[in-house]
């Protein structure tokens, strides 16, 4: 665990058992970030239990698999969101980058396996490029991240609607290439490939964040861009790279979603903005940057999606879900998202 992203200054009396030599359990509970991951996972288990009580079969292997698969979509978007939130940024362009990517995927592949690879590369390249533009606007033009990514969301919405003629184009109704659909739906050793993909992403992102120079610099920028700059960190390139990753993951989520659903639709990216941010925050990252990790976001995504699924299983009407959703996030924030009082 290299990031060692503790909150500022624990008190003198509380020894911080983060030393490499501390017992495993203590190390697991040592940092608040890690504690939150544990809470999030515990919450998911409790929720599955409630779900099982409400509707038997909810916590059956297939039920769990279904919930986790949906969580993986949120998790993919949350990967990108984690990267930018770690430097105190935010990516509001997720909905239409995702939606644009899904439509680009079907229209460029036209449902043929032969075109699947170029379409895949094109779509991922598009997401990355959009992310780079986000980063460049923020770090080179000095546009606040909220404004830049918000505007980019509009730009992507306009372009997507415009090019697809509002989803009336001939190619818009195409299906995702069968290989892509199969890749999402198939199972390997009884585990859906969508989940395996997520597992790979979890490992990769965690390695990048905790074991590479890039990851170290990301945390450094999140803690203090100024101090990092003065220590020779290339803040500009790093920032652009991080937003590019966010764009890439949004596009990837878009591809997986069309693979899952078969076809693209307008508005399919909308739920993922709120959920991705919520997952990252529930997973213990600080919205101000410098603290958190992707395991947390993944745990956040699982508990969030489980919560929604349980509420649906309880036949909770939409308004109730919406209210409970908000209240639970508030409660979690009040439990551990507070800033330290300065006085």
């Amino acid at each position: 665990m290299a990031s060692s992203a503790e909150p500022v200054m624990p008190g003198p009396e509380t020894p911080v058992p983060t030393g490499q030599d501390a017992p495993l359990l203590l190390r697991l509970l040592g940092s608040p970030t890690r504690r939150r991951i544990l809470y999030a996972l515990l919450a998911s288990i409790v929720l599955f239990a409630i779900g099982q009580a409400v509707r038997p079969g909810f916590a059956s292997p297939s039920g769990i698999r279904a919930v986790l698969t949906i969580a993986s979509f949120v998790g993919l978007v949350a990967a990108g969101q984690t990267f930018v939130i770690l430097i105190g940024g935010i990516d509001l362009s997720v909905p239409w980058v995702l939606n644009g990517a899904s439509i680009l995927m079907v229209t460029s592949s036209l449902g043929s396996n032969a075109r699947a690879i170029p379409a895949l590369l094109l779509t991922l390249g598009m997401g990355t490029l959009v992310g780079m533009l986000n980063g460049a606007g923020i770090v080179l033009l000095g546009v606040p991240a909220v404004v830049m990514t918000l505007a980019m969301n509009g730009i992507m919405e306009g372009l997507t609607l415009g090019f697809s003629g509002g989803m009336t184009c001939a190619a818009c109704g195409s299906y995702a290439p069968p290989v892509v659909q199969a890749a999402v739906h198939d199972s390997l050793f009884g585990i859906p490939t969508a989940l395996l993909l997520w597992l790979v992403v979890i490992v990769l992102v965690s390695v990048v964040l905790s074991m590479t120079t890039f990851g170290r610099r990301t945390y450094a920028i999140g803690n203090s861009p100024r101090a990092s700059f003065l220590a020779g960190v290339d803040v500009t390139t790093c920032t652009i790279g991080l937003y590019a990753l966010s764009g890439l993951f949004s596009a990837l989520a878009g591809i997986v979603l069309v693979g899952y659903g078969g076809q693209a639709a307008l508005g399919m990216g909308d739920p993922y903005l709120f959920q991705s941010i919520a997952a990252v925050v529930i997973g213990g990252a600080s919205i101000l940057g410098g603290r958190g990790n992707y395991i947390g976001s993944a745990a956040g995504a699982i508990s969030l999606v489980t919560l929604v699924s349980v509420l649906m299983a309880m036949n909770m009407p939409e308004y109730g879900r919406s209210i409970i959703y908000g209240v639970i996030i508030l409660v979690l924030l009040l439990l551990y998202g507070r800033e330290d009082a300065e006085r």
């Binding site: 060692s4 992203a5 200054m9 590479t212 120079t213 610099r217 945390y219 203090s224 990092s228 020779g232």
Partner: peptide
Amino acid sequence: TEGLLLAMSVRDNATLAVLRRLA
């Protein structure tokens, strides 16, 4: 504000300027 990353570890702070050499 300009030197250290207060929430990061002693090690992270010490090696920040020589990361490239360590990788």
